[in-house]
């Protein structure tokens, strides 16, 4: 595990600079130097007065397998929300007034969040999980076509090599 700094919470009190044994918290980027951070040390995490630092895992644990009936029900919900999102986007694109476009856009955003929630609970929560990686491998193998677009093969391959 290594430390990460949430820049929205950091108030530049700099206690983390003094407690870190390796200088990992002292960087120009604002983020902690992951290479220098000691696995699981957490001194800066406990010292920060703004609760701006936390530890993230390098290797995520396997998740207990989802019941197939639950996962299917959640994915059906996701698919329906996604269809509604497509309709809301079409409504936004063809809107005759800014007010109409505003309502359709807000609905599309909200509908996508519910679709994502279905995906997350169906088992696609952690990108490093067996299910997520298998899904990405399947995409790479099947290369579903989308009219007028080029499949992002290089990005997908690089991503899989990094996960």
């Amino acid at each position: 595990m290594h430390a990460v700094r949430n820049l929205r919470l950091c108030t530049k009190d700099c206690v983390c600079l003094f407690v870190c044994p390796t200088g990992a918290t002292d960087t120009e980027t604002g983020q902690i130097d992951f290479e220098k951070c000691l696995d699981g040390c957490r001194r800066c995490v406990d010292a920060c007065p703004s609760h701006a630092i936390s530890l993230v895992m390098d290797n995520y644990p396997a998740r207990p397998a989802k019941d197939k009936a639950v996962a299917d029900a959640l994915l059906n919900f996701m698919e329906q929300k996604h269809r509604e999102e497509a309709l809301a986007k079409a409504l936004a694109a063809s809107a005759s007034t800014p007010a109409r476009a505003k309502v359709a856009k807000a609905l599309a955003a909200s509908l996508r969040i519910l679709a994502e929630d279905g995906a997350r609970e169906a088992g696609y929560m952690i990108p490093q999980s067996t299910e997520s990686k298998a899904f990405l491998e399947k995409l790479l193998a099947q290369r579903p076509s989308v009219a007028g677009k080029q499949f992002p093969e290089a990005e997908l391959k690089e991503l899989l090599s990094l996960l």
């Binding site: 990460v4 993230v56 996701m78 698919e79 899904f135 995409l139 992002p152 990094l162 996960l163």
Partner: peptide, 29 residues
Amino acid sequence: YSPGPILSNLAKALEKQYRPHEAELLWKV
């Protein structure tokens, strides 16, 4: 199933893990 919402959810998860490069790749996919 549609890959779109599955992938955007995983991209958000990578942002939360502070892996901006991986998140950017996944947002492209």
